[in-house]
Design a protein around this nucleic acid. Structure first.
Length: 525
DNA sequence: TAAGTGCCGGAC
DNA sequence: AAACGTCCGGCACTTA
């Protein structure tokens, strides 16, 4: 039976486990309700109230103290495999990782495995701001009632003994499910990417808070002086959404956000507190991104994939014509502009190319002619007739018949009566309930998701590669990776980032060449 | 008063 | 037959 609230028993159990390492060990971390978990980026361990361990035939729970956590850490680093359940306590996990850093980070990667499994098996994510809890996921998944209180304190540990004992059966139940649904590859990817995510959250991105405040002050000034209603709306948006960041989110000259690798249907990251993935670009708020800069001894590497969604779509749709464009090193937007205008690619103007870019992304994911028409008018000041808009769509489909075939195939799915599941290259699933299939999402999610998988693979490889140069990743924005490296090795780091990102994506997107643009920069943007 | 929803606009 | 997508979050609004 379970030993409770007894540090001696906990240590004895750890010692036994080390003497005879089990194949798997469940470890369980409980958050402390006294310290709200959403208070982020506090490296203290105060929010972990209790830790529990469970393996075949024995388990123990103990209050989390520096000593017990250190003992746990020591045991983890010597055990062959660790399954860790963290119960609504991702933040606690992150803090544990932050406290011990590498090489424990590799072990910590396993911490998230059951939640990872549960979310992957759920085949989609909950909308809204509250992510599903592990309890909800696992109960639904296993069709069992896994009783554990939502919040745990040392005082209620006796009531949760059964939960600790349930850990091994839980993983034992989940593993065959992952196999059956062919989720093992994406499961492994998601587990492996966690250390680099943790490291990135911990690092944060350097920001010049004073410069940030100056720009915010300019917004306020202009807001008082302008009469233009449209401008006022824009400024209100900027002020209400971003102006407070300098006060609320800068600590020690850095902004630290939360990154969520499993919170989206597509497999892309989401980002909160603050959402650094929506920092206004230079076009919207000049100079704002330039506030993100390290001190002079460090330099940023800003790298992104070139036209990654088009390349992934060419791959998944088996579209030879679109593949050919990339194989020949041509510009896909210029190519589309040429087919629409009927003129050679080298006579295409910048404006025509810009419109063709919208054509490519719109038509690729199922936009209709009439919406394209209004899009061209609003976004580009190009007035088209219905006929011209429809012709543009036809031209696109004729140029890329493989894309048209892919649309037809997915359209067939969406007419099916039962539920429909679409998958990424590594097997991540998105399920649509019967009658709720979105044609456009069914096109889009596998493409975004496959790109995200290549990106995550790059993150896994980049973390140690940058570390060996004295650098580190500081932010990801879907297809963009930002690293901070010592200025002396900037060019070497740039080349490394470019090569690693390219090869990582190419290992998944195999039928189309991959291009990465990596730059050495003093600032972001 | 708290919690949920829809719209809009920021990013990619 | 036709259908651009993925997110987060502020604001205005309704609901309990």
């Amino acid at each position: 039976m379970v030993q409770l609230r007894n540090d001696e028993a906990f240590e004895a159990t750890l010692a036994e486990l080390e003497a005879d390492p089990p194949k798997a060990l469940g470890v369980w971390l409980a958050p402390d309700p006294a310290e709200p978990l959403h208070v982020q980026n506090d490296p203290r361990l105060g929010s972990i109230a209790a830790i529990g361990i469970a393996s075949a035939g024995q388990s123990a729970v103990t209050p989390a103290t520096p000593a017990t956590i250190a003992a746990l850490h020591g045991a983890l680093s010597r055990l062959p495999q660790t399954y860790v359940v963290f119960h609504g306590a991702q933040d606690a996990l992150l803090r544990l990782a932050a406290a011990f850093g590498s090489p424990a980070a590799a072990r910590v990667a396993r911490f998230g495995c059951t939640q990872t499994a549960a979310q992957l098996l759920a085949e989609g994510t909950r909308r809204g701001r509250n992510l599903p809890t592990l309890t909800e996921c696992t109960e639904k998944l296993l069709e069992t009632s896994w009783q554990a209180p939502d919040r745990l304190t040392t005082d209620v540990i006796p009531a949760t003994a059964g939960a600790a004992e349930a850990l091994l059966p839980l993983m034992q139940a989940i593993t065959p499910l992952l196999r059956k649904r062919e989720l093992t590859r994406v499961f492994a990817l998601e587990c492996d990417v966690l250390p680099s995510v943790i490291a990135m959250e911990r690092a944060g991105i350097a920001v010049d808070a004073a410069a940030f405040e100056r720009i915010a002050a300019q917004w306020h000034t202009e807001r008082r002086e302008t009469d233009v209603p449209e401008r006022i709306a824009r400024l209100d948006k900027l002020i209400s959404t971003y102006a407070y960041w300098g006060q609320e989110h800068v600590r020690g000259g850095r902004i630290r956000c939360r990154l969520h690798p499993l919170a989206t249907d597509s497999g892309r990251f989401s980002c909160t507190d603050p959402n650094l993935q929506q920092v206004p670009s230079n076009h919207t708020a000049p100079g704002l991104r330039a506030c993100f800069r390290p001190d002079p001894s460090k330099t940023l590497i800003v790298a992104d994939y070139a036209q990654i969604e088009l390349r992934v779509a060419a791959h998944l749709a088996h579209c030879d014509a679109l593949r050919q464009v990339f194989h020949e090193g041509r510009d896909p937007h210029r190519a589309t502009a040429a087919t629409i205008t009927g003129r050679p690619e080298d006579t295409i103007t910048d404006h025509e190319r810009k419109l063709a870019k919208a054509v490519n992304f719109g038509f690729l994911f199922g936009m209709g002619a009439s919406r394209f028409r209004s899009y061209a008018a609003d976004g580009y000041g190009v007035d088209l007739t219905d006929r011209e808009a429809a012709d543009a769509r036809t031209a696109f489909m004729r140029t890329f018949p493989g894309i048209a075939r892919w649309h037809k195939q997915v359209g067939g799915l969406s007419r099916k009566s039962g539920p429909v599941t679409v998958r990424t290259a590594l097997g991540r699933r998105k399920r649509f309930a019967a009658g709720k299939v979105s044609f456009n999402s069914a096109l889009n999610i596998p493409v975004q998701g496959t790109a995200a998988e290549g990106f995550k693979r790059a993150m896994i490889e980049l973390q140690p590669a940058l570390e060996s140069l004295g650098g580190r990743g500081v932010m990801v924005v879907h297809d963009e990776y930002i690293a901070e490296v010592p200025t002396q090795v900037a060019e070497q780091a740039r080349a490394t980032v470019e090569a690693v990102m390219t090869s990582a994506m190419a290992s998944i997107v195999t039928s189309v060449p991959i291009a990465v643009e990596a730059e050495v920069r003093e600032t972001w943007g």
